[in-house]
Design a protein around this nucleic acid. Sequence first.
DNA 1: TCGCGATCTGGAAACGTTTCCAAGTTCGCG
DNA 2: CGCGAACTTGGAAACGTTTCCAGATCGCGA
Lengths: 346, 346
Amino acid sequence: MTSTRATLIQVAERAGVSLASTSRALHGVGASKAMVERVRAAAEELGYSADAIGRSLRMKKTFQVAFAVADIGNPVYVEMMRAIHEVLAPHGYRVVVMSTGDTSDSTIELVRSLGSGFVDGMIVSPLRTDDGLITEIQQAPVPVVVIGRAMDDRGISSVSTDSAGGIGEAVRHLHTIGRRRIGFLNGPVDTTPGASRQRGFDAAVNAGDLAAERIERETAEDFTVGAGLEAARRILARVPEGAPQLDALVAANDLLAIGAIRAVRELGLSVPEDVAVTGMDDTEIGRVFQPSLTSVSLGASERGRAAARLMLQLADDPDQPAQQVSVGAELVVRESTTTATERGER
Amino acid sequence: MTSTRATLIQVAERAGVSLASTSRALHGVGASKAMVERVRAAAEELGYSADAIGRSLRMKKTFQVAFAVADIGNPVYVEMMRAIHEVLAPHGYRVVVMSTGDTSDSTIELVRSLGSGFVDGMIVSPLRTDDGLITEIQQAPVPVVVIGRAMDDRGISSVSTDSAGGIGEAVRHLHTIGRRRIGFLNGPVDTTPGASRQRGFDAAVNAGDLAAERIERETAEDFTVGAGLEAARRILARVPEGAPQLDALVAANDLLAIGAIRAVRELGLSVPEDVAVTGMDDTEIGRVFQPSLTSVSLGASERGRAAARLMLQLADDPDQPAQQVSVGAELVVRESTTTATERGER
DNA sequence: TCGCGATCTGGAAACGTTTCCAAGTTCGCG
DNA sequence: CGCGAACTTGGAAACGTTTCCAGATCGCGA
């Protein structure tokens, strides 16, 4: 530990050749067979391995990409991170995890910090977005790829998904299986995901072909099981005198959906028979839950991969035009809305 | 994006002072009031922010720490990572995520890569450990903190937990609530966690005061729900002619436990009445599951925090002696082993 | 008024690498 | 045999920062 690492200069001395030749030999370009042999041997003996910092300084390239989200613990972000890592690592890029914080301002701060040049680019999924943040991203000194909201005309590369349409799919699915009294459990509406989900639900229930008897909306404190439980209690308590209970709940993510299921069961009702419940994000936790969750997959892994691929291109040429990628939303039907026989299983 | 970032030299020119003074002024040491004022202004105008690479090269410090695990998606590791990030970020350290791969060899490879000096240290939780890996860690050019297995006498800093003892607690808990036919569902025994859990179970059932009627052991392919389901099916199918079914299952982690619960229910039995099930790791997924899982908490967050604190010390002085930290295991009793009344709730 | 210490400033080196440029060598081909 | 092209090599600069060192300036007390 106390012994200092070997430098290229030492390798050069040991091999008895110039620094320049040593560097070339190790990269295997513009060097004679003999030279390569000789330098390789010297490097081997000294246990040389090139210093990443020195190289970065000279090449103006860090081979690092930042991935920034509000909460690294959120399963959706974890899935993205894994996908990003899987795409980037084989290309020699390291992934630096960062936290955007809850607000647009703290995210702006983070984008600013890119100015110190410790990464070649950043993939960010902001919880809240405002014009200030957008401006900051446009002026960022390194390429930024935004996951979450299409940035079509702003010269920012982005990967988006149709969460609004996804909510619509969930609503139509519930309608198809005969549910007519539908409640919507959203998270905070002032967040980017909260806003688009709200839009999606409103559009779906306002569509002409939806024959609904009753529509209710409720907002949870945040996107967690606990908040979902409380919000679901509220919405289920709202049933009018003598009217029947809601027969379906659309939740804005899987955790809220699980909270909702708890609330339904508290009332002695069962899922899916009395109340069908849908989630969103298609997380492992939802797949594993009993009943397994019908959920709208937003392709977290796919979005992560797409963002990483965009970043690879941008890292190669930061001045290439911004690109938009869109990943489809897909409803995955499971036990929380249909019985096994309804799903056509034996 | 095309415009290049301002350098310290440019700030110096703009302020009309020397490079050295500029650097000092920005750090606020050994500079006159006027100088600081002047340089600050120039830096402000140019939007200067110090280049991390240049600084790293000179200071021989990257302000980065690597966190390496086999699977970044595993909830336990996610929890650790979050804790590590929370401790390190306020001290100005960035966290680089890396993957050790499944084997000891691939982990060795990773430790070797530290030789390129892109981080000031590494926190690693190896899935499999052998002498080669230990040697490599000892010789690593930067401090390494190992999470998972005590490294007392090897000069390696480590954070460990008593998972063996934790399994024992689970067994005793089941015994206390009257279960006498206990099955153990482990993951691969050739992994570090698998081995210690096996040890813990064996020790517990061999303890003199355990009056068990029957003990069964089974090994799952890996630590997932699917593997747990299959392994549980096997162990439950093993009931001898005319003998009663197992009345308790100890699983080596929460995912296996959830798989086990599924298997139990497949047989028309219920949890916890017919078969009590315990998990390990006390993950969110287990807390949220219905029934909520009785689980042995191994303090993932706490281990992460402890490792990060060790790393901070080592980053400060890499030559200080290795330290060992131990985090206690604690059984958290929930619905999967006891009914509400048994737990003393109303 | 002088001397001395404290404070401030600038020059220059150093961190480790890649790459431009020029000089030297080799080789092939006319 | 000679000439140019192709290849190989070494010197040196550059990336952006911090910090050592020496010199200059200032203030203060004797």
